[in-house]
């Protein structure tokens, strides 16, 4: 068991009303698994993924990574977890406009090493970034800025960025949601390749055809797993 969510509660307060999104949800992910999370829009899929990736905290319950609760992590450990252990692909890409796509891809590698470490690591990191981008079909556009790319291209950069540090977990929030089926299939194939190579993947999707290709499908209904 690499990742486990126990009795997860998450609610948002909006003035007087309280919106309960997750209500005591249990989930566990095994090493090497390809899990798809499906559910209606607004059912809390992104919320769950954020909790699993330590980008947000549950109101109640806990997330465990290899048996250790994330809430017990110090801020340094938490940063390390986000940087090295998890690769996160956002629903809305979230690239830095000021950087070109190669730099965007390299950012987690740079952030994860100090100045001296980076000097020795730079070359290999750069090579693997280029390799990743080539596999995403962006080999010819390394110097382009993020804002010059289409939505699908940005999504692929976001995937490359998520994978640059060889994370144990890839958490992807609708990586194909904004793409036509052909491009979506391309990305999916790439992800399946990573999965075959042993990558653990948790993916949120609307698309039942994509969900069919996963090892396991988790369906979110009423803040719980059906």
């Amino acid at each position: 068991m690499i990742l486990k969510g126990v009795d997860l509660h998450k609610s948002y307060k909006m003035g007087q009303t309280k919106l309960e999104v997750l209500r005591g949800l249990d989930v566990s992910i095994s090493e090497g698994e390809f899990v798809a999370i499906v559910g209606a829009s607004g059912s809390g899929k992104s919320t769950l993924l954020h909790l699993l990736g330590a980008l947000d905290k549950p109101n109640q319950g806990r997330v465990e990574f290899r048996g250790k609760a994330l809430s017990s992590f110090g801020s340094g450990q938490l940063n390390g977890f986000r940087n090295k252990t998890v690769g996160f692909v956002f629903q809305f890409y979230h690239l830095l406009d000021e950087l070109n796509i190669l730099e965007n891809t390299l950012l987690p590698a740079m952030a994860g090493s100090n100045s001296f470490g980076w000097v020795s690591r730079r070359k290999t990191a750069k090579e693997s970034a280029i390799l990743l981008l080539e596999r995403m079909g962006l080999g010819g556009r390394l110097k382009h800025k993020a804002y010059q790319l289409s939505g699908g291209e940005r999504q692929r950069v976001a995937i490359a960025r998520a994978l640059i540090n060889d994370p144990e977990l890839l958490l992807a929030d609708e990586p194909t949601g904004n793409l036509d089926s052909e491009t979506g299939n391309g990305i999916l194939e790439a992800l399946e390749e990573f999965h075959l190579a042993g990558q653990t993947i948790v993916m949120v999707t609307h698309d039942s055809r994509i969900a069919d290709r996963a090892d396991r499908v988790i369906r979110l209904v009423d803040g719980k797993i059906e």
Binding site: G53, L55, S75, G76, N79, G80, F81, R82, N83, K84, F88, F90, H94, L95, L96, L107, P108, A111, G112, R161
Partner: peptide, 8 residues
Amino acid sequence: IMRSIGVS
């Protein structure tokens, strides 16, 4: 974005 990729 920076925080989510582990920048302190």
